[in-house]
Amino acid sequence: MSEALQFAQTTLQEVALVFMAVVYMLRLRWIFKRFPAAKERQGSTGNPDTNPRKGFLYSWAIIGMPWVMESSRTKPIMYGMFVIFHIGVVVAIAESFIIPYAPGFLAANPWLGTFIQVSCTAACLVGVLRFIRRVSDKGMRAISSPDDYFSLLLLTVWFAFAALAGTNDASGGEGFLLTYFWMTAFFLVYVPFSKISHYLYYPITRYYFGKSMGNRGTYPIVKSVPGYVKTAGE
């Protein structure tokens, strides 16, 4: 392994990780100190079987329940793409730890390399589809910022290199590995300032929204039951 790759895999990643952690700490401090939470005094309403605690737990879990929200229930392909994309994120992040810190494990389990390659390739393809949707759909274009395009593009390319580097095989050259780790480092530095850090906010928004909706008996979501359909004779 070259010194450059050694540096990219370890020191560079560690510095980038520390940077990200520091920025996130400051970010969380900003959110919790700068913005006090509004106190809710109202008594509970609605279904007595639910409460604020159930509400926020349900709210946190809602992303894993595609049958709950109409927006995911009626768009199974979009939801499937979301799942593939985010599995790709988890796998690509895990890869950045496995390769430098547990290369033996990867070598001893060739299926793992294949799994990394398959999931990151699938995520990359979803990234391409998402990018096409964002560029071609008028409504999506209207709500997109340069950060939205760049973040999606960054992740999609990163998935590609994560797939190529997935087996940690430098026999054909270190190019893929080097690119993957430099991109990972850039990703870590850029993320706290971009929309990609939405995972930091997800627990916060979902906690408060779920707590309130739980208190008011709206969470768990009370879905539609089938409606009456009038017959031809009516």
Partner: peptide
């Protein structure tokens, strides 16, 4: 802007699901 609203300001990923 309180914490609930700040979350709403920060968390949108422009996914278009809404």
């Amino acid at each position: 802007v309180n914490r609930q609203i700040a979350g709403t300001m920060l968390a949108c990923v422009h996914c278009g699901q809404c």
